[in-house]
């Protein structure tokens, strides 16, 4: 019966599009994040939690 259900499903493009979107996004943000020019910016950003000294 499950196979009957499978045959009736006619939106195979839906998961394919989603998968392509994921792979494309993954490649793009990984490439962007690890660009050499962004290194210092992200190193600074990583220090934000430690930068909360009070003036009292």
């Amino acid at each position: 019966m499950k196979q009957e259900v499978l045959k009736a499903f006619d939106l195979p493009w839906l998961p394919v599009i989603a998968l392509v979107l994921f792979v494309t996004s993954f490649v793009l943000y990984t490439w962007w994040t690890y660009r050499a020019t962004n290194k210092s910016h992200y190193e600074q950003a990583g220090n934000i939690p430690l930068d909360d000294k009070d003036i009292a």
Binding site: F22, S25, F26, Y29, T30, T33, Y34, N38, K39, Y42, E43, A45, G46, N47, P49, L50
Partner: peptide, 29 residues
Amino acid sequence: MYYFVPKAVNRPVYSYRLSIIHFWSLTFI
């Protein structure tokens, strides 16, 4: 974790860039 672990040990997160990959991949998947 990304806030309190660095605060508890007074060190920045090991790799901020890895945290970005972590975020987008986890959210998407």
